[in-house]
């Protein structure tokens, strides 16, 4: 028994060193729904680099956007971070001092090579006739959405709901707050991540509607058999911009800056944008977007900068300790 363990130990150490010696390796720390996307991107990028004579291996780590940011702050050696929202990379800049505060200006389009939006996933035939945000607070309806405190996607959903309520005739901040409070009263389970919520809605048959990333909704339709669900686009939603950045302190120490930058730039190339679109993320490249236009209906979208004054403000107002989200969840409501 002991000998087997010893052999295993030796073997794994050998395997680890062999893998490191042969290539440049990058670590991409990302959020939950991008697993399939980056598997394909990584392969395409490695092929492109191989053509130039470099062998690049990219490892990926996925998890809740906030907890991934925290791991990087605590010392996870991420060359690049590709997270769900800018606030989490801001936190790495602010709490970890691992990259400059103006990181978002370094790459085009708010450093977001792809976007998404929040949609409703309902059961086939839309039995509860859910057409817009207002329908979600019908009595008895159950809404599935993860906890905005732990899930990046859920924060976009929350803000989209808020924005819709605020933009209704006679809408204002108080009315919007009342609306999200009513909305979250219809939520029977607050899952910690987007995938857990999707599983509860699809596999467990919980709830009547799932608030989801557009890409995640398409993916779950594909994975769980498309016949059982359909996507509903509300009258307006939000432009979700998942940003990417290199982590300066780490790439400088690992001497991987050039490759890491090339990797992020690669995301903006038509080749990568094709992959992006095929994984149901909205590409930034107008030509690719036009090509896949059919799968991305246009609808009015709020933006975080224009409608919420940027992530720093939105985070402090809504999701910080004691923020609006905490207020609507006072016990004994």
């Amino acid at each position: 028994m002991k000998r087997i363990f010893f052999l295993l130990a030796v073997a794994s150490i050998l395997a680890a060193t062999a893998a490191q010696a042969a290539n440049i390796s990058l670590l991409n720390v990302s959020y939950d729904p991008t697993r399939e996307l980056y598997q394909q991107i990584n392969r395409a990028f490695a092929d492109q680099q191989k053509a130039k004579g470099d062998t690049v291996t990219i490892s990926n780590s996925h998890g809740g956007s906030g907890s991934q940011a925290r791991s990087v702050i605590d010392g996870l050696q991420a060359d690049v971070v590709t997270l769900a929202l800018a606030a989490d990379i801001d936190a790495i800049a602010r709490n970890g001092k691992l990259l400059p505060a103006d990181w978002q200006k370094r790459l085009p389009q708010n450093s977001s090579p792809y976007t998404s939006t929040v949609v409703f996933l309902v059961r086939k035939g839309n039995p509860k006739q859910i057409k817009d945000w207002g329908d979600l607070v019908k009595p008895g309806l159950q809404v599935i959405t993860p906890n905005p405190k732990t899930s990046g996607g859920a924060r976009w959903s929350y803000l989209a709901a808020w924005d819709w309520a605020a933009k209704q005739p006679g809408g204002n901040a108080q009315k919007a707050k009342d609306f999200v409070a009513r909305l979250y009263k219809q939520v029977p389970v607050l899952d910690s991540g987007a995938r857990a919520a999707t599983v509860n809605f699809t596999k467990r048959g919980l709830g009547d509607v799932l608030l989801s990333w557009e890409d995640e909704a398409h993916l779950s339709m594909k994975e769980m058999g498309g016949g059982a669900y359909q996507i509903v686009y509300p009258s307006r939603s939000i432009l979700a911009e998942p940003p990417v950045a290199i982590v300066d302190r780490i790439v400088d120490r690992k001497k991987t800056r050039a490759v890491a930058e090339a990797y992020l730039r690669f995301l903006y190339t038509p080749q990568a944008q094709e992959i992006v679109a095929r994984n149901y993320f909205r590409p930034r490249d107008p030509a690719v977007l036009a090509k896949y236009g059919k799968q991305f209906p246009t609808l009015p979208l709020a933006t975080i900068d224009k409608d919420f004054g940027g992530w720093a403000k939105a985070q402090a107002t809504h999701f910080a300790n004691g923020g609006v989200f905490d207020q609507i969840y006072q016990p004994g409501r």
Partner: peptide, 26 residues
């Protein structure tokens, strides 16, 4: 909390189970 969840590198069996589950690979 402290694995970093790097696929194929720092994922232990229980973490890998969660990764597969979250990948719709039941």
């Amino acid at each position: 909390v402290l694995s970093g969840k790097i696929r194929g590198e720092t994922n232990t069996m229980p973490l890998h189970i969660q990764l597969l589950y979250d990948n719709y690979d039941y």
